[in-house]
Each structure stands twice: as structure tokens, then as C-alpha cells.
Design a protein around this nucleic acid. Structure first.
Lengths: 147, 147
DNA sequence: TTAAGTGCAAAATCTTTGCAAATGT
DNA sequence: ACATTTGCAAAGATTTTGCACTTAA
């Protein structure tokens, strides 16, 4: 008989038939604690005890399972963030706005924002949208406004 | 006295105080001939006589000067396309829709499409938008429709 | 017990840097 | 002639692969 999940992260791993290992729980804890998407290098620096290769594999697995999603920042670096509850293995609900702060470089996932419908020229069959905005996030904007 | 430009590409290089070299003209010819953005690896395969490093440097220079712009595809690979006439050194007009075809992998720059305005939550100061759509391009869509 | 996951070593890529030779003006 | 640009070699960085050891179930 299998061990009972003791928290949400363990439940999440259970749900996707993934073993509840230390590195995986660390990744989940890390990503959940942040409101911004985190790059692989950043995660690597934070979780120094986890092998880099393991991190690559965990991030790939999580992305395939729809646990996290990958968003590229202005430099083309992959950043990872927890998926909203609407995501599953078959369909990623990552059609929300991603905001790249040009000052602090953080990537914000603005899940709640309502996006206006966009129509494409005839012939194009759209499967999904990804929308990025860049500029100053509230924190950096505030700082730059101070006299 | 400087050599007279014999075509638009040479004029373009002149305008940005760049020497009219073979590799640079090749890049301009290549990118202009395509309606889709081209990745660095693709360019590399086509222009086999040009050194890879030279290509990197040319693409960087052109991007800085506002001659081409860089767009990342679904895999985070950089793709390059000629800028519209609205681009200059100070301001890139690349806020148009980029379409990634999931079948042929081509990246289309849909310059002409009218984009609806998008409002962000308070505090965010937007400097620019980048919008991607993915799905099937007209060519691939057509093929898949045939019975 | 055993399939899945991890860590290490090493390969394969991708990108940047330094410098001498070549080239445009 | 001279500053720019190129090509080559080599360094650095990033990502992938193979395999033996470990661990969750």
C-alpha cells in the first residue's frame, strides 16, 4: 500500500503518478513560493544540492504532465511557473499575459487578465496564443517614480 | 569618396554606416526573400560559406541597428526577420503578431494585423507587447484538410 | 523487489571571446 | 592606409545522453 500524501505537493505528484522525491518537492515548493516565473539557472543556484541534470529532467517531466509551464523571457531564457488549476496533461492553459520587467527581470504570470479576442487572416488555424508585455513591474515602477 | 550603393540592401547598410560585405548582403537577401522569420541554425545551413561566428555577429549588429528583429519561437530559438520600415535604431516596431506553425515550424510576421488594446493591472508600466499565436499556417492547414 | 529517479561523467550543442589576416572605403 | 569585418581556434555556457547507484512504493 502506498504512503499517504501529507500535503498538496505530494497529492499533486500522486495525481500524476510521479514519485514523491526530495528534489521534486523542492522544485514545487520553490516555484509555488514565487509570484514570478523562475529560470532554470535561478533554480539551480537556489537548489545547490540538486544536480543540474536532475533539475532539467524534473522541469521537463513537470512540463509534460502539465504541472508547470514554460515561458521564455526577453532573452529567450526559459522560465518556469506553476500552472493554474485549469492546466492538465492534454491542455495547457497558459494563454495568459506574461509580463517581463525590464528592470528586475522578473516574469509575472497575470492569470486573471481578460484577453480581447484576436482574429487572424484567413487560412490560419489558431491553436493558442501567448502574449508578452514588457516594461516596469509595480515594484520597479514605484521606485523609479520616487523623487 | 565612397562607392555608390547599387541596390536597396547596399543603401540600407550605408544608412547604418556598415560596410557592404558579402556575408551581410547574403543575410539581407536571405531574410528579405522569406515571408517567415528564419532561425540562426537555418541561416547557417543555407549560407554554408559564411562562418558561424560571423553570422552571430552580423545578426547582433543588424538587430542593434534596427535592421532586423529577433523573435523567439515555441522552442525558445531565436528567429530573425527584416524589420518593417517603421523600425529604427531607437525603436523597434515589432509589436505585431508572430505566428508559429506547429507543423512546418515556420514563423510568420503578421505586420498588418490590427491588435486590440490591452490594459494591465494598476502599477504595471507597459513599454511593449509581443504576441504569439501558434497553430497551422494556411499552407499546412490546407494540406491537412484534403481528404 | 523493482521500476523510477538521481547523480556523475562525458558528449553534443550553442554562444562568446581573442586575435591575426583580409577587406571595404 | 586604416578602421572594420571576417575566419579560425579556443573558451564558456547550456543541454542532452548513458549508465550505475539509490530510493520510493
Amino acid at each position: 500500500m502506498s504512503k499517504k500524501p501529507v500535503n498538496n505537493f505530494e497529492k499533486l505528484l500522486d495525481k500524476h503518478h510521479l514519485k514523491k522525491t526530495g528534489p521534486r518537492l523542492q522544485v514545487l515548493t520553490m516555484l509555488s513560493s514565487k509570484t514570478v516565473a523562475t529560470s532554470q539557472p535561478d533554480l539551480e543556484n537556489i537548489m545547490v544540492d540538486v544536480d543540474r541534470v536532475t533539475l532539467y529532467r524534473i522541469l521537463n517531466t513537470f512540463e509534460e504532465k502539465g504541472i508547470i509551464h514554460k515561458v521564455f523571457d526577453l532573452n529567450g531564457t526559459a522560465n518556469y511557473a506553476m500552472c493554474s488549476s485549469k492546466c492538465d496533461e492534454d491542455h495547457h492553459h497558459d494563454e495568459h499575459l506574461h509580463f517581463n520587467c525590464t528592470s528586475c527581470k522578473n516574469v509575472y504570470c497575470l492569470d486573471d487578465l481578460e484577453l480581447p479576442p484576436i482574429t487572424l487572416p484567413n487560412g490560419f488555424k489558431v491553436q493558442g496564443f501567448t502574449l508578452y508585455a514588457n516594461g516596469l513591474c509595480p515594484k520597479c515602477n514605484q521606485t523609479s517614480e520616487k523623487k
